[in-house]
Design a binder for these strands. Structure first.
Length: 636
RNA sequence: GCCGAAGUAGCUCAGGGGUAGAGCAACUGAUUCGUAAUCAGUAGGCCGGGAGUUCGAAUCUCCCCUUCGGCACCA
């Protein structure tokens, strides 16, 4: 039997053999380091028989697959530990996730943080035992009966639902046996002690809120302790830049109980908001969007016509007036934009018609969904609808993508990925219309040179969508932009235009947003920059701080000239030490500190210190104003 | 909405049936100083809200609200 190794060499073995034996025949070191094998590209247990010619690769901790194996085994060790400590629980599933794993258990009593510590300790003991992990193939019915007999009804339910042609495998480690597809490490001792149980949470069985709630234990697992430490450090860094914390510290906004899910924007936060909004408005103007503004409150009949009443009624704020009319606070802008489109007769010559609104919407989001600025009940979208012909979908998509990537880049985000979400189970419109919409959007995305990740079944109820997910400074992803093709709403709300032929036709609506909502985007922006905004975005751009009161007059003049040049900043003439002032304003994340003392006053210069730098630069006042004015100009 | 945890000064937190605490911030005064903390003093609280137990509740019990971590949801 010929086994081809990654370096191209071919070795001959008697069949059957195993990955473990092959590794041993190559070298004792490799045998020890081996975690699993790849047979013709398929990841397998080291101990599983190999009985045919194959390309083979020994997987060690250096392989890209190692982390996944280790995390998967850590999940199993957790399940074993939990079962040993709490024999009355049922185990369910425990997959690998980003940075680690989780395991869902069924138990009437909630786990406590102390239980978490116990489980972690027991996991270490199981690893020390170094129990061999062995694969067994079982008959389906026997396996289901077995799990039923030991009180593991979730496992037997999983088995019953597995596809008929799937081999049922169980893995035995020590006294514990679990249903699993594998592959696994050869023994529990191979799991590095570089894991940590992170948190407890509730999670629905099979992800369905109609099902019972299980108890989920989250863990993080790595190949070595250094990696674990790095991960924990990254989490601490993320916590420091949490927009809720920075929002308070930088005096940008607050929330309070009387207005759950709505933002109280303070002076500085609102300045940031306006800066971003004004920037986006200029970009839209340049792209020939019409900016409109539509009613906050609209009679329910419009939402019934659009289909939103039926689908989202319980998530809408409503008001009833003396005349018994029911009004809905608009949860979105599209139906209103169609009303503007319907005013007067539109011609094909009017298309594409790009209608934009900084649309303030209200949605009664479920209480558990609220999260700082990221998910609120009152928010403003940078919304627009492009009314166009089918032929224009491609060119409008390309145009939009160019605008979007340019705006992201100006705002400091260079990387983003695009997801394509197609028809959901519950939807409006005929399948033929969906075919048409999906094909059109996909073709347009291809024409725009986008690399698409597929996101099946995640489209809006009226059409497929592209989702633009940007990556922030510490590698986290945030969905912000969207582009959705809609053939349904123009039909429902009876939007038409007169075609070249003189016939009335339905326009296509492209729903699109770049930031998504200002609230959410500003949260992302705050966290991306960790509050250290570039000058054009910073709500307070500079502070003029005196070294002694002898420089007060000059400092006042510097401040006045900067303000005259359009910059926003502070004057600090308090009788404190300059080092104290530097600290105060650095903590306040003011990007530029201009220190002026006797020397500067005499020479008519300023000493500039940038946030995050210990360097100082002495510049003539006029040059400093010139430099800072240039730097504070928005990109467009 | 569901599971779990938490709400004490502006912030971070201690206290745990018998008069409400600290550090930082704030305010007042002094300090005139060269790039991340000068000194002293003052003020600040219905201990998230409501009910109950008790001679007495910030503390114990119940209900509610909000926040946090997840799940579900996200037009």
């Amino acid at each position: 039997m010929a086994i081809t190794l990654p370096d191209g060499s071919v070795r001959d073995y008697d069949a059957p053999t195993t990955g473990a034996e092959i590794a041993a025949s190559i070298g004792a070191g490799l045998a020890k380091a081996a975690l699993a094998v790849k047979v013709d590209g398929e990841l397998r247990d080291l101990k599983r028989a190999i009985d045919h010619d194959a390309a083979l690769e020994i997987v060690t901790s250096k392989s890209p697959d190692a982390l996944e194996l280790v995390r998967h085994d850590a999940a199993h060790v957790l399940a074993q530990a939990a079962k040993e400590l709490f024999p009355d629980i049922q185990v369910t599933i425990g997959p690998v996730i980003e940075d680690g794993f989780y395991y869902d258990f069924s138990r009437s009593e909630p786990f406590t943080p102390e239980d978490l510590e116990k489980m972690e300790k027991r996991m270490a003991e199981i690893i020390d035992r170094d129990d061999p992990i062995d694969r067994e193939v079982w008959d389906r019915d026997e396996a289901a009966a077995f799990f039923e007999s030991v009180g593991e009804s979730y496992k037997s339910e999983i088995i019953r639902d597995l596809p008929a042609d799937q081999t049922i495998t169980l893995y035995r480690q020590g006294d514990w046996i679990d249903l699993c597809r594998g592959p696994h490490l050869p023994s529990t001792g191979k799991v590095p002690k570089a894991f940590k149980l992170m948190k407890l949470a509730g999670a629905y069985w099979r992800g369905d809120s109609r099902n019972e709630m299980l108890q989920r234990v989250y863990g993080t697992a790595w190949l070595n302790k250094d990696q674990l430490k790095d991960h924990l450090t990254r989490l601490e860094e993320a916590e420091k830049r949490d927009h809720r914390k920075l929002g308070r510290e930088m005096d940008l906004f607050h929330f309070q109980e009387e207005a759950v899910g709505s933002v109280f924007w303070h002076d500085k936060g609102w300045r940031l908001y306006r800066t971003v909004q004004n920037y986006v408005r200029r970009r839209l103007d340049a792209e020939h969007y019409q900016e409109v503004n539509t009613p906050q409150m609209v009679d329910r009949s419009l939402w019934e016509a659009s289909g939103h009443w039926e689908k989202f009624r319980e998530h809408m704020f409503t008001a009833q007036t003396e005349d018994d009319r029911i009004w809905a606070m608009k949860p979105m802008n599209c139906p209103c934009h169609v009303q503007i489109f319907r005013q007067g007769t539109k011609s094909y010559r009017d298309l594409p018609l790009r209608m934009a609104e900084f649309g303030s919407c209200l949605r009664y989001e479920p209480s558990g969904a609220l999260h700082g600025l990221m998910r609120v009940r009152a928010f403003t979208q940078d919304d627009a609808h492009i009314f166009c012909t089918e032929d224009q979908i491609t060119s409008e998509t390309i145009r939009f993508c160019e605008l979007l990537s340019s705006i992201y880049s100006d705002l400091g985000f260079e990387a983003f990925v695009v997801k394509f979400s197609d028809r959901p189970d519950v939807r409006a419109g005929e399948d033929a219309v969906w075919d048409q919409a999906e094909d059109a959007l996909k073709a347009a995305a291809e024409a725009a040179n986008l690399d698409l990740e597929l996101n099946p079944g995640e489209g809006a109820f009226y059409g497929p969508k592209l989702e633009f997910v940007l990556r922030d400074a510490i590698g986290r992803d945030w969905q912000c932009g969207t582009l959705q093709v809609d053939f349904v709403l123009p039909e429902r709300l009876d939007a038409t235009y007169v075609a070249e032929s003189g016939d009335r036709k339905r326009p296509v609506m492209l729903h699109r947003a770049i930031l998504g909502s200002f609230e959410r985007f500003l949260a992302v922006l705050i966290e991306h920059y960790a509050g250290h905004f570039p000058l054009w975005l910073a709500p307070t751009q500079y502070v003029v701080a005196t070294v002694t009161n002898e420089a007060d007059d000059y400092a006042t003049e510097v401040h006045a000239q900067l303000a005259q040049a359009g910059l926003v900043g502070l004057l600090d003439t308090a009788a404190d030490k300059i080092s104290y002032k530097v600290r105060q304003h650095s903590v306040g994340k003011i990007p530029v500190i201009l220190a002026v003392g006797k020397r500067e006053a005499e020479e008519r210069t300023v000493s500039i210190r940038r946030l995050g730098s210990k360097e100082q630069q002495s510049l003539a006042l006029a040059d400093a104003i010139h430099t800072l004015t240039n730097e504070s100009q928005p990109p467009a």
